Computed example of a mutant assay.
Amino acid sequence: MNTKQMLMVSTVAITLSMGGTTWNDAVQASSIENTQTTTPIKEDLLQVLGVSSEEDIYKAQYEGQSLAEMARANHVDVQKVIALQLAELTELLNERLYSGSISPEQYQAQCAELPEIIIKSVYAM
């Protein structure tokens, strides 16, 4: 995995693990009601990318391939990869919001950043 890819993956992991502690500024957001509509994510990354194991993903990324390149190589719409990751990370943020580990303001700020972070990660930008 090249330095840029490692940095992007690390950034996503750190962002999610920090619990939004860096977003302490007030955010203008509407109140959030507990309308959690959890639906199981029907596909995982292996299925969407069309690969057989996590090791395949690791090897491809180690050789410099992005998730987008893996998807295209397997005739998969890159948007499916983005949508899956967005759904998974949004679900994680929902769980953190409803457990009280992040505030509604932190939730809104992190949700707003997710699409850009995921796109950069998928395309290894």
Rank of each mutant, 00 (worst) to 15 (best):
L86S: 11
K4D: 09
Q36F: 04
S53L: 05
Q5C: 10
L84C: 08
S17G: 08
A13P: 00
Y62P: 00
L93T: 04
L16M: 15
E88D: 14
D44E: 11
M18K: 14
K80W: 01
T11L: 12
Q47F: 02
E33Q: 13
A26K: 13
A29V: 09
S101T: 15
G20R: 10
C111D: 01
V51T: 08
L46G: 03
E33N: 11
N34I: 04
E43F: 08
L84H: 08
L67I: 01
S99W: 01
M70H: 03
S99F: 02
A71D: 08
A87Y: 00
S17Y: 02
E63G: 03
N2F: 01
Y62K: 15
T3H: 10
C111E: 08
L67W: 02
T38A: 12
Y98H: 11
L92C: 03
T90G: 12
T90D: 11
G100N: 10
M18R: 14
D77M: 07
I32E: 13
I41A: 11
G64P: 03
G100S: 09
Q106T: 14
E33C: 03
A112N: 13
V27D: 10
A87R: 10
L97E: 10
M6Q: 13
S30Y: 03
S17P: 01
M8S: 11
I14N: 12
P40L: 06
I57S: 05
S52C: 01
N2V: 01
L93S: 08
K80R: 15
L86Y: 06
T21R: 14
M8P: 00
A87D: 15
L84D: 09
Q65Y: 06
V9W: 04
E69C: 02
I41E: 11
L89N: 14
S101Y: 02
E63K: 12
T37K: 13
Q65W: 05
N94I: 00
Y58G: 00
D25T: 10
L45P: 04
V9R: 11
G50W: 03
Q36T: 06
Q36E: 11
T22D: 12
L89G: 03
N74G: 04
T3S: 14
S101V: 11
H75Q: 14
S30N: 12
L89H: 13
T35A: 14
E43C: 00
I102F: 06
K59E: 12
Q5A: 13
G19V: 03
L45D: 05
V27T: 13
T22L: 14
Q110G: 07
N2E: 07
Q106R: 15
E54G: 09
D77F: 00
I117L: 15
I57M: 09
I41T: 15
S52H: 09
T37D: 12
E95N: 13
Q110D: 06
V51L: 08
I41H: 07
L114H: 06
D25Q: 15
D56G: 02
G50I: 06
S30L: 09
E95S: 13
E88Y: 07
A87W: 00
T35Y: 04
G64C: 04
I32G: 03
A26S: 12
I102Q: 09
Y98F: 11
H75W: 01
Q110S: 09
A26G: 05
A71F: 04
L16C: 06
L46M: 09
T35P: 02
A87K: 13
T37P: 01
Q79F: 00
V48D: 10
M18W: 02
I32C: 05
Q28T: 07
E88K: 13
T39A: 12
G100V: 06
E54K: 09
T3V: 10
E116G: 04
M8Y: 05
Q61E: 10
